[in-house]
């Protein structure tokens, strides 16, 4: 009997710790499928963040390094500079990348480090239970913005892909979503291209993936997917910001 669907080799055969309806699992799978399809598992080194996906080093089958909060791009820089023949990806959430690690991501990008960042944006801090993130939308209620995000109190959400795409060293930047099948397919294409950009030694590549957090958003999984579509995408438009025509 022909196998039509199987777990990618780059993922271990474990059940993940993520909440029901969380889209981290989908994104892990996409990264793993891309690693399989490019045949680079043996040369890939992942860098885990601090946040809900802190222990994704347990899930990936390639070598992994766990980094301090926000520092994954610096750690990734160290790994890649030590072993330029390896392929290095960082996997980071919005608190990790866009708050405490802003300096590290901006400078890894501007140096054009040959690494790939998977940036998971769910507009909230998950691991520490639902605080305001740099990417939390205006009026969005979180445990530290109980009356909604107000510009005069909390400032405005950061559009990371737009910001990073202004940097010379960042050669491929794309925002995708995983709230439905069509978008999941697009997300995989973008992740694959980001890795291929690294393999071609072109420079820094990043894919921002809009993701759900039903638990901290206070919704069921279906509502969360709809909320992402109705609220996040209008503010965080999907599409390519840099390197659309880059041949790799």
């Amino acid at each position: 009997m022909a196998t039509v669907f199987k777990k990618p080799h780059a993922l271990k055969d474990l059940s993940m710790h993520y909440c029901p309806g969380c889209t981290h699992g989908i994104i892990h799978r996409l990264v793993a499928e891309v690693i399989d399809e490019l045949g680079i598992e043996g040369k890939t080194i992942g860098v885990s963040p601090v946040g809900c996906s802190y222990n994704n080093y347990e899930y990936f089958n390639c070598d992994m390094v766990q980094a301090a909060h926000g520092r994954a791009p610096a750690v990734g820089t160290g790994v890649k500079r030590a072993n330029p023949d390896n392929y290095v990806f960082t996997y980071q959430g919005d608190g990790d990348l866009a708050a405490i690690g802003t300096a590290e991501i901006v400078h890894a990008a501007t140096r054009g480090e040959k690494i790939t960042t998977i940036f998971v944006n769910n507009a909230i801090y998950g691991m520490t239970s639902g605080q305001l993130a740099p990417t939390t939308l205006l009026n969005q209620v979180t445990t530290t913005s109980p009356f909604g995000r107000k510009p005069e109190v909390h400032g405005f959400p950061i559009k990371v892909s737009e910001m990073i795409s202004t940097l010379e060293g960042a050669v491929y930047v794309e925002r995708v979503s995983v709230h439905d099948i069509k978008n999941i397919i697009n997300a995989k294409k973008a992740i694959k291209k980001a890795f291929k950009v690294q393999m071609a030694n072109k420079g820094f590549s990043m894919v921002e993936v809009l993701s759900t957090c039903p638990t901290n958003w206070g919704m069921n999984p279906t509502e969360a997917l709809r909320w992402l579509q109705d609220n996040m995408i209008p503010f965080y438009p999907l599409g390519n910001f840099k390197g659309k025509d880059l041949e790799v």
Binding site: V75, V79, R81, E104
Partner: peptide
């Protein structure tokens, strides 16, 4: 901060 974390990465490698 970044420098010591680059050290962390390179030492890991």
């Amino acid at each position: 901060v970044a420098a010591i974390n680059m050290v962390y990465g390179a030492a890991s490698a």
